[in-house]
Amino acid sequence: MQTSRVIVKLLYLLLLSVFIIDCAQLDEFQKTEEPPASISHRYSPNPTSKRKKAILIADEKGTEITDLLIPFYLLSATGQIDVQIASQTGKPVSVWKGIFLQPHLSLQDLSLKPDIIILPAVFHETDPLILNFIKSNTDKQFLSICEGAKIIGESKQFSKYQITTHASSRADLEKKYPDLDWKKDLKFTKDRNLISSAGVSSAVEATLILIEQTLGAEAKNKVLKKIKYPYPEIRKNHNSEAVGFWDSLKIASKLAFDGNPKIGVEIYEGMNEFVLAAYLDSFARTFPSRIETFGPPMIRSEYGLYLYPTQTTNDYSLVFCRDVCQSYSFPEEIRFRQRSDDYPFLVTLQEVESLYGKGMRGIVKKLLDEGP
């Protein structure tokens, strides 16, 4: 009887895992939570600047963390672009996975005059405020990250433009938005005033290309050095490999037998936004029962974002901390130090492998659309 229940559970989880998607995972594994009403901070107004201005669109109901924070971090690191995040009303944003963020602006702010608009994967790609903002700024430079391509398609402003997206969603989006010229096996595309990225981690390459196009090679090289980019040139060719049946079987097996771990990631003052995104996004794709952030009630990140933890429990199976969690009473065997000594996605993939094996590393790599 016990064996039968295990088999039924495994088959059920296999069925669920077959429907894994790209930038955002199944609601079964990633619940979109409402930010607490009590959190709200205001940024100091920026003085009038002659620097170019970039606006990252965020959906208050849910925005993918890597799609949002990687472009924010890389553009901010140039020191030559004013980068701000705008949501529908300016209220705190629920960021997939495991953190809340205070945007700088509301999309209803009539003073918004961006040079660059960045579109991450969001919960509501048909939101009228988002689509109207795009339609009123069609002459600007656009950067679409992963399933931000849905917003491009819904806007109906980019007919015949070349575009790419996550390997696991490209076929569906190609059917839904046939007026776009869909490309595969590329980290990014460039067509007129639109740059688009493949899935999740390809936000790095697409944003670096945007930096080079906007500011030149010197600015791009400065950022490459800062993030310890491990490749001799910005990668463009890319093996767009979707998650397959055998990957789904491995995921179902992990869900059935590994005890549904709860993972916590510490946040702290001055935290690197790239490192934060890499840890949360990589380990969310190992399919824990929960992944959360913990730490002070509010922090300012390296480039000044107000971030709020989602902690609802201390009952973690695995925690990643600054300085090996010396300020917390977690058991030593579940504590790991957050590393920032190498390219963040290489670090997190190495740690996934050390904890779960090469098979899970390969799956996470596909879900990140990181490529070979």
Rank of each mutant, 00 (worst) to 15 (best):
I39P: 08
Y43P: 14
Y43F: 09
Y43N: 10
P45W: 12
P45E: 13
N46S: 12
T48I: 11
S49E: 07
R51K: 14
K52W: 02
K53F: 09
K53D: 09
A54P: 06
I57V: 05
A58D: 01
A58N: 03
D59L: 12
K61A: 03
G62T: 07
T66D: 11
T66Q: 15
L75I: 05
L75R: 02
G79D: 08
Q80P: 09
V83E: 05
V83P: 03
Q84P: 14
Q84L: 15
T89K: 13
W96L: 06
W96D: 00
W96K: 02
W96T: 02
L101F: 15
L101I: 09
P103Q: 11
L105K: 12
S106Q: 11
S106A: 15
S111V: 10
S111I: 14
L112D: 10
K113E: 14
I118F: 03
I118W: 01
L119F: 02
P120D: 01
P120V: 00
P120E: 01
V122M: 02
F123R: 08
E125H: 13
I130P: 01
I130G: 01
S136P: 04
N137Y: 06
N137G: 13
K140T: 05
K140D: 07
F142K: 03
A149N: 00
S155V: 06
S155N: 06
K156H: 10
F158M: 12
